[in-house]
């Protein structure tokens, strides 16, 4: 049996006028893998992620995500992935329960399924006392944990996390990563960008982009050996300079 691949990218390219933001990148991500997508500011990470999530069209090459061609099946693709970023995740002026109901509706869950999911999230994150509180009144660390649970409410094959822990306190940051591990153990593939290099080390495999290309890709152990480094921080600096 061949391993299931949740992302296959082949020479994926995106140009803006004369500028090539993403330059023929090719990689696979396996089912249940935690895949760290790193790079310097301006290296093309955001552009690549936008193509993989169906927000931006590609200029060349092809890719499939969760089994859908990113060019031909953009809308179906969007329904079958989860997405969460630091900047936009939940509606601040809706309560916790309303947010869950909203996203359940967006992703086509039935009333019954949504209710079941709501109960599950509230119980797992221990949120009973704030389930009717406006999101704007909930501390950031909790919000990010809720946002992650909401992003996988429709049990997608893959969830994209864009700097999910930026500005979060160090204990909550680690609790957040426990949620990521749990999701991965349940077979959800996790595609994550971060500027915290300790978090990069939690990933099964790490890809590093520089100037539109993938400069390195491998497990932490492989990258440390190849670049003769003690930490991912060192690897990053060697590659990005």
């Amino acid at each position: 049996m061949t391993e299931e691949k949740v992302i296959v990218a082949n020479n994926l390219t995106r140009t803006f006028g004369k500028f090539t933001a993403v330059d023929h990148i090719s990689f696979d991500v396996r089912r249940g893998e935690i895949f760290g997508f790193l790079g310097a500011n301006g290296a093309g990470k955001t552009t690549a992620t936008k193509m993989l999530t169906g927000i931006l069209s590609s200029s060349g090459g092809y890719a499939t995500v969760a089994g859908f061609d990113i060019k031909k099946h953009r809308n179906r693709l969007k329904k079958n992935i989860g997405y969460m970023s630091q900047k936009f995740s939940l509606y601040e002026d809706l309560t916790l329960k309303e947010n869950i109901r909203f996203y359940g509706g967006i992703y086509g869950l039935s009333k019954k399924e949504t209710a079941a999911k709501t109960g599950e999230i509230v119980e797992r994150l221990d949120l009973k006392q704030i389930e009717n509180t406006l999101i704007s009144e909930i501390p950031l660390g909790w919000k990010q944990k809720i946002a992650f649970s909401v992003a996988i409410i429709h049990s997608p094959k893959i969830v994209f996390l864009d700097e999910p822990t930026s500005g979060v306190d160090p204990i909550t940051r680690r609790q957040f990563w426990n949620l990521i591990y749990e999701a991965a153990e349940n077979g959800i593939t996790v595609f994550v960008t971060t500027h915290y290099m300790d978090e990069a080390e939690y990933c099964d495999r790490i890809s590093m982009m520089t100037e539109g290309k993938i400069a390195a890709l491998g497990s932490l152990h492989e990258l440390l050996t190849k670049y003769n480094s003690k930490s991912m921080d060192e690897v990053f600096i060697k590659l990005a300079r």
Binding site: A40, H195, A240
Partner: peptide
């Protein structure tokens, strides 16, 4: 105020 938030490790250094 948080000049290095959202900034990659090299630019941060």
């Amino acid at each position: 105020d948080e000049p290095t938030t959202g900034v990659d490790p090299v630019s941060r250094k």
